[in-house]
Design a protein around this nucleic acid. Structure first.
Length: 268
DNA sequence: ATGGTAGCCCCGCTA
C-alpha cells in the first residue's frame, strides 16, 4: 500500500487552518508534518484535524515561535520529540508509522542574517543544531531501518535549489558551511533526497519565496528549504514527489509551500 | 542597491 507524506511550514496553524484543511481535502496525504505552528498545545486546532480524518497526532508547540506537529490518518506509535542544543524549543517530533517506518519532522533554526557564528548567535545555534543532528544519526542510525526525515531544514543545498547560486553564497541558507553540515547529516543517515530523486539536479526547484518581494511569482527568487528524505530500504518504493508551488499564490499564504512524496511503505 | 512583508500578542522579536 502506498503512503503519501507531506511537509509544510505553515507559519501559524491557527491563522491558516482553513487553508490546511483545504489542502488535506485536495491532496489527501496520509500524514502531514507541520512546522512553525506557533501555538501552544492547548491552542492547537486538533479537533478540526480529527474531524477531517486526521485523528492521530503528536504536537509540540510553544508560545509565539517554532512548533512542530505530525497529523495522521494512520496510527502513530512511539511518538516523541528530542531537545537539541539544550533548548526545549519545539523543533522536532517523531513517530512510527504502520510498517515500522520511523518518521522525523524537523524545524531547523533559520540562523539569522549574518553568516558568522561569532557575530551572530543565531547562526552559531544553527551550526550547533546541525552538528548535534549529525552526531545523533551517527549514534542511532540502523542502515536497514525504513526511515523518513522531513521538514523545514532552512538550507538549500544544491546550486539549483536557489534562484542564484552565486548571489546566495553569502546568504544564510546557502552558505558553504551550512551546506557542508547538511551534507554530513545526509551521509550520516544514508539519506536519499526523495524529491531530487524525481527532479534532475540541473532543474530549478523551490519550496519558499520571501514575503518581501513585490511580486513573488514574477521575480521567482525562491529557495528549496523544505525537504523529504528516505533511507535506502524505502528507495525502491518511491513513486512520486510534488512541490505545490500554487499554494504560494493562495490568499494570505505561508511563505513556504507543501512538499509531498508518495512511496510504497511495504504495508500489506 | 538596499529594503522590503508577515505573525505574534504587547510593541520588539523572529523569520
Amino acid at each position: 500500500m502506498a503512503i503519501t507524506v507531506a511537509t509544510w511550514n505553515i507559519n501559524s496553524v491557527r491563522l491558516r487552518l482553513d487553508m490546511v484543511l483545504r489542502f488535506l481535502q485536495e491532496k489527501r496525504p496520509d500524514v502531514l508534518c507541520l512546522q512553525e505552528t506557533k501555538a501552544i498545545d492547548d491552542a492547537f486546532p486538533s479537533k478540526a484535524f480529527a474531524e477531517a480524518g486526521y485523528r492521530h497526532r503528536i504536537i509540540r508547540g510553544m508560545k509565539s515561535y517554532n512548533g512542530v506537529a505530525i497529523l495522521s490518518k494512520l496510527p502513530l506509535e512511539n511518538v516523541g520529540g528530542h531537545v537539541w542544543c539544550g533548548k526545549d524549543d519545539c523543533r522536532h517530533v517523531f513517530a512510527t508509522l504502520p510498517g515500522g517506518i520511523e518518521l522525523h519532522n524537523f524545524y531547523i533554526p533559520a540562523g539569522g542574517d549574518i553568516p558568522d557564528p561569532v557575530e551572530n548567535t543565531k547562526f552559531a545555534h544553527k551550526l550547533a543544531f546541525l552538528d548535534e543532528t549529525r552526531d545523533w544519526l551517527l549514534r542511532e542510525r540502523r542502515p536497514d531501518r525504513p526511515m523518513i526525515l522531513v521538514g523545514d531544514l532552512n538550507i538549500a543545498p544544491l546550486e539549483h535549489d536557489v534562484w542564484s547560486h552565486k548571489q546566495l553564497l553569502g546568504v544564510v541558507s546557502h552558505t558553504p558551511i551550512e551546506v557542508e553540515k547538511l551534507t554530513e547529516i545526509q551521509a550520516a543517515g544514508d539519506w536519499i533526497d526523495a524529491v531530487r530523486h524525481f527532479v534532475p539536479a540541473d532543474q530549478k526547484l523551490y519550496s519558499w519565496w520571501s514575503y518581501r518581494a513585490r511580486d513573488w511569482a514574477e521575480a521567482d527568487r525562491g529557495r528549496r528549504l523544505d525537504h523529504i528524505w528516505v533511507t535506502p530500504p524505502l528507495k525502491s518504493g518511491l513513486q512520486r514527489a510534488e512541490i505545490l508551488r500554487e499554494a504560494r499564490g493562495w490568499t494570505q499564504p505561508s511563505d513556504h509551500v507543501p512538499v509531498l512524496v508518495t512511496l510504497d511503505g511495504g504495508i500489506a
